[in-house]
């Protein structure tokens, strides 16, 4: 049983590899994507499974903020943690305003990252539970 299912999005494959290895070792199920488009494709395919997206802000092509907006539009329940180089703190804050769960500075401490992802996953699950509860209630009230 994994702690959570993650999608790592970053244009640096070396960084992706290292992170994937470390996170996998910490009992996370890790998917990776090297661009915003890839991430969205992957979410469409495996949408149900991914709970938390770790998204680099600065990427060529579709950048982190645009990707975030798309994810939030198509998959509103998926939590997103922004990962930023230092120069892009303001855009990370923009990201928070657009519904990101939190942001982290790169390079980040693994324990902090694990904690953040855990919180994000928990929040997502809470949301899902509530939705399920609501649906159940709906069904039960309908029956009644």
């Amino acid at each position: 049983m994994t702690i959570a299912k993650l999608l790592l999005v970053d244009d640096e494959t070396a960084f992706l590899d290292a992170m994937k290895r470390r996170l996998t070792k910490r009992n996370f199920e890790v998917y990776t994507a090297t661009s915003g488009m890839d991430a969205l494709d992957l979410l469409s395919d495996e949408g149900e499974k991914v709970e938390v997206v770790i998204l680099d802000v600065k990427m060529p092509g579709m950048d982190g903020i645009e990707t975030l907006a798309e994810i939030k539009r198509k998959f509103p329940l998926v939590e997103v943690v922004m990962l930023t180089g230092h120069g892009t703190v303001p855009s990370a804050i923009d990201g928070m305003k657009q519904g990101a769960f939190d942001y982290l500075m790169k390079p980040c401490d693994m324990d902090v990252l694990v904690a953040k992802v855990g919180e994000a996953a928990a929040k997502k699950r809470r949301h899902e539970e509530k939705i399920i509860e609501a649906r159940m209630q709906e069904i039960t009230t309908r029956r009644a």
């Binding site: 290292a18 992170m19 390079p107």
Partner: peptide, 11 residues
């Protein structure tokens, strides 16, 4: 520099 440093730290 940030990205390579991040990779090194992760490795």
């Amino acid at each position: 520099i940030n990205n390579p440093v991040a990779i090194m730290v992760e490795e």
